[in-house]
Nucleic acid binder design. Structure first.
Lengths: 225, 225
DNA sequence: GCCCCTCGTGTCACTCGATGCCAAGCATGA
DNA sequence: TCATGCTTGGCATCGAGTGACACGAGGGGC
C-alpha cells in the first residue's frame, strides 16, 4: 500500500462531510495530514474557479495544477481524475444520506425515513447555496461530470438498499430495497434538477417533501413481495 | 437541383447518430449506407468479443480496429468513443421505450403505460438473452460503461418526462413527470440488475411486473401537485 | 552534532483515448 | 476521360492518466 490515491481527505466544502468514525477512530490531524488537506483544498478551489470561468472541458489538469502551484503529477496524487475534483465535493452526500437513514428510528415508515435521509444533503445545499449551486449546475450540465456523478449515485443506491433491507428485515436480494432506494434517489435527482434550473424555487426541502408525498403510497404500501 | 441529393444529405448530423436496432429486419437504403452498416456491425462484433474475453479496460481501440480490419481513425468515424461501441448496442432501448409510451392509449393509467413501455426493451433482452446478457453484464460491471449508460438514461428520463407531461396534460416543469419517469427507470434498472446477476430468474417481464405493482399506487394515485 | 530513513514532490517518459488535417482510393455522373 | 464527393488511412497533436526515478525536507536514532 502506501500507494497513490487514497482520496479519503474529505475536501472540506460545507460541513456535511461527517466522518462516520466507526473504524478509523478520531482524527489525529497530523502535520502531514494537515499539509495534505491544505494542498487538496487549494487544488479544489482553483479548479472550481477555473471551471466556473471557462467550463469544465476547456480547463486542463496542467492548468489547474500550475495555478495551484503544484505539478500535474501531484494533482493525480490527490484526485483520481479530473472529474473527481468536482465530484468529491458531492461525494459526502451519499454517505450522509446513508448515515441518516441508519440513524432514523426503526419504527419510522420507509417514506419518512428516506425523506429525512435525503433531506440532509439537500438542506446543506439550500443552506450553502452560494457555494453549492454553481457546483451542482456545473455537474448537471457537463456530460462527463454528470456521468461520474450518476456512477456515484449507483453506489449510493446499493448502500441505501442494503440499509433498507436490514432496517425492514427484508431480503436484500428482493425487489423492494433497490427499488425504494431508486425512488428516493429519483426524488433527489428531480429536486436537484429543479433547484439548479429554477430561478424561482429557493427551497429544496419543500420540493423534496412534495416529491415524497407522491412516493409515499408506494414506499409504505407494499406488504410483501 | 434534384441532382442525386436523394436523401443522403438529409441525415448528416453526427455520423454515429444511427440506429443499430437488431430486432427489426435490416432496412437497406443506399449501397453506401449498407457498407457503412457492414463496417459498423463488424466493429461492434469484434469489440464485444474482445471485451468479453479480456475486459473492457484491457482492450485498446487500436486492437479493435485492427482486428476488424480498419484503422483506429476509422473507428472514431463510426463511434464517438470506446464506450459507444457497447452503449450504442443498448441505445435503442431508450427510443423504444419512449415510442411505446407515446403509442399507449391515452386513457391508460400511467403505471400501465409505463410498464408496457419499459417492458419493450426488457422483453427484447429476455428474448435475445444469449446476445444481450453478456453485454448487459459488461455494462453493469465496467465503471466507465456504467457511467455512460447512466448518462444515456438521464436523457431517457427527460424524454419520458416530456412524453408523460403531454400525455397527462401536466406542467412539464412540475414534479410529477420527471419523478414518474425516474421511478420507471428505477424499476428498469433494478430489473436489469437482478436479471444480469440472477442465476435463477430468467424472466425480466415477470420482475418488472412485480416492480410496477409496487410503484402503481404512487404513479396513479397522485391527483395534483 | 550527524546519519539515515521516509515521505512528498517534480521531472521525464510513456500509453491510450480522441481529434484535426491532408492525401490517396474509389465510386458516381457529366 | 475528367471532375466531384465520400470514405479511408496515415500523421501529428492534444490531453488524461500512470510508472519510474531522483531530489530535498523533516524526523528519529546514534
Amino acid at each position: 500500500m502506501t500507494h497513490d490515491a487514497v482520496h479519503g481527505t474529505g475536501v472540506a466544502f460545507p460541513r456535511w462531510h461527517r466522518r462516520v468514525s466507526t473504524a478509523s477512530g478520531p482524527r489525529p490531524s497530523t502535520l502531514a495530514q494537515r499539509k495534505r488537506q491544505l494542498v487538496a483544498t487549494e487544488l479544489t478551489e482553483t479548479a472550481l474557479q477555473l471551471f466556473a470561468h471557462k467550463g469544465f472541458e476547456a480547463v486542463t489538469v496542467d492548468e489547474i495544477a500550475t495555478a495551484a502551484g503544484v505539478s500535474k503529477r501531484t494533482f493525480f496524487r490527490y484526485f483520481a481524475s479530473k472529474e473527481d475534483v468536482v465530484v468529491q465535493f458531492l461525494a459526502g452526500m451519499g454517505a450522509d444520506t446513508r448515515a441518516e437513514l441508519a440513524a432514523r428510528p426503526a419504527a419510522e415508515p420507509p417514506s419518512a425515513a428516506l425523506l429525512h435521509a435525503v433531506s440532509v444533503p439537500l438542506a446543506a445545499c439550500g443552506d450553502h447555496a452560494e457555494r453549492t449551486l454553481p457546483v451542482v449546475r456545473l455537474v448537471l450540465r457537463s456530460p462527463a461530470l454528470l456521468a461520474r456523478f450518476l456512477e456515484h449515485q449507483a453506489g449510493w443506491r446499493e448502500e441505501l438498499a442494503g440499509e433498507l433491507a436490514s432496517r425492514l428485515g427484508r431480503d436484500p436480494a428482493g425487489i423492494y430495497p433497490p427499488l425504494a432506494a431508486g425512488m428516493a434517489l429519483a426524488a433527489f435527482d428531480t429536486v436537484l434538477h429543479r433547484w439548479s434550473d429554477g430561478a424561482g424555487e429557493p427551497d429544496p426541502l419543500a420540493l423534496v417533501s412534495r416529491a415524497f408525498a407522491l412516493l409515499a403510497p408506494a414506499l409504505d404500501g407494499a406488504g410483501e413481495e
